Computed example of a mutant assay.
Amino acid sequence: MSKVPNFFSLKAMNKSHKEISMADFENKVILVVNVASKCGFTKQYDGLEKLYKDYKDRGFVVLGFPCNQFGGQEPGTEEEIESFCQLNFGVTFPLMAKIDVNGDKEDPVYTFLKAQKAGLLGMTRIKWNFEKFLIGKDGLVHKRYSSIATPESIAVDVENLLKA
């Protein structure tokens, strides 16, 4: 298990490379996703944005963490990524700075997430773009979803955590 008590004790860089505290999202349900613009799963941006719009007024947020570790499918700068997401998918949820989700330069947010909830067969490493972690208002990871899990399939879990 991670030594970090909960998600809200972490910090990350936003798309402008300014450090923000995850405590800014305290008392919210959060879906953290490692995203990429040139991936077969990129169309999930539509579903992520819909999920965000459907539940944001009830205390839900999607945090997109661009990552270029899987097939070089997120080669752009933060500005290019944001422009692509807005133009093609109307994304309004927060996009963070581009990070690594595995390896020596792994972002501490992902170190925490993976320690909280292993994937298929107990694997902790992120296997591909668009893996998702659902964090409750308590700052703990409640569920981890593979890349093939659609945002629409997660809606019921979001709903349940918002009611909790």
Rank of each mutant, 00 (worst) to 15 (best):
V62K: 02
S16D: 15
L113E: 09
K114F: 06
S83G: 04
L121A: 12
L95P: 05
S21T: 11
N160E: 11
G40R: 01
I126V: 15
N160R: 04
F25T: 04
I99V: 08
S2V: 12
S83Y: 10
I154S: 13
N27L: 05
A155D: 11
T92K: 10
Y110F: 06
Q69M: 08
A118D: 14
D107L: 01
S146K: 05
F60D: 03
V62W: 01
I99D: 00
Q86A: 09
M96G: 01
K3Q: 14
L134K: 03
G122E: 11
F89Y: 15
G103R: 12
G64W: 01
L48H: 03
E26K: 07
F93C: 11
G40H: 05
G64K: 01
I154H: 10
K105V: 02
L134T: 04
S16P: 06
I154V: 15
D46K: 11
N34K: 03
M13I: 03
P94H: 09
E159K: 04
N14V: 10
F112M: 13
G136I: 14
Q73T: 07
E159V: 05
F133H: 03
S153G: 08
F70W: 02
S2T: 14
S147G: 06
I99Y: 00
K137M: 13
I126F: 01
K56I: 10
S9P: 06
S9H: 12
R125I: 10
Q116S: 12
N88W: 13
F133N: 01
L113P: 08
Y110D: 03
T111P: 02
G76I: 12
A155H: 03
L87Q: 11
V35K: 01
N160C: 05
T111E: 11
A97R: 00
G71V: 10
F60P: 05
V109I: 12
C67Y: 02
K137V: 09
E74A: 06
N14H: 10
D157L: 03
Y55T: 06
G59D: 12
E152I: 00
L113V: 12
E152A: 06
G64Y: 05
V141K: 02
F70H: 01
A12H: 07
A149M: 02
G136S: 14
K117D: 04
T150Y: 00
P66C: 07
V4A: 13
L113I: 12
L10I: 08
D104F: 09
L87K: 11
K98Q: 04
T111A: 07
V91T: 14
V4Q: 11
C39H: 07
M96P: 01
H142Y: 12
M13C: 05
F130K: 00
S21M: 07
Q86P: 09
D157A: 06
V141I: 08
K127L: 11
V32W: 02
G103D: 11
T124A: 10
N14S: 11
N160I: 02
L31I: 01
S2Q: 13
R125S: 15
R125F: 13
K43F: 03
A23S: 15
V101Q: 00
I30C: 06
K15W: 09
A118C: 14
P5F: 14
Y52E: 10
I148Y: 00
I154W: 07
